[in-house]
Amino acid sequence: MSDRVGDWLQLVHDRYPPAEAASWDHVGLQVGDPAWPVARVLVCLDVTGAVVEEAAAVPDTLVLAHHPLLFRPLAALTPSTASGRTALAAARAGVAVVAAHTNLDVARDGAGTSDPVVGVLGLRDVRPLTTELRESGDLKLVTFVPPEALDTVLDAVAAAGAGRIGDYERCSFRVDGTGTFRPLPGSDPYSGEGVGQDAAEQEWRLEVVLPRGRAGAVVTALDEAHPYEEVAYDLYPLVAGAEVGLGRIGRLPEPRTLADLAETVRHGLPAPHLRFAGDPDRTVERVAVVGGAGDGHIGDALRAGADVYVTGDLRHHVTLDALEQGLCLVDAGHHATEAAALPHWIARLTEAADGRGLTAPVIASDTPTTPWR
């Protein structure tokens, strides 16, 4: 059976969960049908008209891009905008487009867009530069059950997909307590003294985690297994742990000058149009990195105690302000910092695909997308 777009979409989402993307981001399937066949996967930074032409040259090509083709909301899908024109061309050619953007930036498998600079400089004691909490994609179900129905309810929600943590199933937490109620006319209470009478009954608070996509099935199973006429329950969104974050902060194996560090990054990525700001002879040791456009994280670099910040797309006044606060800057370019991560991303995707029996080769696009000369 041939690969399908849906197979590759699931692989990408399992490896780089959409829940780890920034709240403003747009990732996942942007053009195409999950049922379309996939003969090859073409990896690129940007989806341009030329990339779509390259993809269309081989039927059933899936384009896997870092930058979303459809990023800003479209009022209409017409050729009047660059993204609309490119999306229409992809759809006409049967080229599916999937994006992994900030969920790839924060990746912990060595394919994150800040990791190439970490490798080039040999940074040590590396951790995320930011540790923003994001929804994990899981929910916690909390309900209240009489003692004699506890196992029945737990079995039912577990069978529907709740209570699975890693290699363990039927995981739960329970606390003994007291529930109170007063039945109104027309009710049929499971326990108590009858309509209009205050009641206090022993109940267990039961907690289980579940994937967001199983919420409907789990709630249905809860309703069917629970003995109460009215089932009380809550669903809480969970957030990812603090180990997920954008950028990296670490220290050099030994102090070196700013000019020497900049030259190492220029050759190592490579980043032929690299520029730096600060005293070339200043000794630096603690390095912050954000691949792509990172001037919005200068404050994070300063708070982390960085001597120098390596990123791209630095603006004039932002750079001046950072220098006044004692932070040296290396602007290696948006394209250069992220393009260096693509070979690592392709290697991780190939490895994951082999483990799932997917056969479409993963290759890098030959189409240059950097606009600068």
Score class of each variant (00 low, 15 high):
H297V: 13
I363Y: 02
G291P: 00
S80I: 14
I363M: 14
L246F: 05
G196F: 02
F173P: 03
D125I: 08
V157S: 02
H273R: 15
A57T: 08
L133P: 06
S23E: 14
L206N: 01
A82H: 11
V287G: 03
D155N: 10
A50Y: 10
L11I: 08
G294E: 01
A221L: 09
P128W: 04
A277I: 03
G84M: 09
G163E: 12
E207T: 02
H335E: 07
P211E: 01
D115M: 11
D260F: 04
D3L: 12
P183Q: 11
G166S: 13
G94N: 02
V289I: 13
P18H: 04
S191G: 10
A353Y: 05
A340F: 10
V308Q: 04
E263H: 06
A364G: 15
V290H: 10
G94F: 01
E201F: 10
A353M: 10
H273C: 11
A99F: 04
E285Y: 05
T367N: 01
V95M: 02
R164Y: 07
V265A: 03
D138K: 11
D46R: 11
G241L: 12
A240V: 08
Y228L: 06
D307Y: 08
D188K: 14
L184H: 09
D366Q: 14
L342A: 14
A19N: 04
I298C: 12
T220L: 12
E203F: 10
L139Y: 05
Y168E: 03
T369Q: 01
V38C: 04
I346L: 13
Q202T: 15
E132N: 06
R205Q: 12
L261T: 00
L238M: 13
W372N: 05
R108T: 06
V362F: 05
V244R: 09
V239E: 10
V175E: 00
P73M: 04
V157G: 06
R275D: 04
R315T: 12
A341S: 13
P361Y: 07
A199G: 07
E20G: 15
V362D: 06
E20M: 15
R164W: 03
H67L: 07
L29R: 02
V142S: 08
H267Y: 07
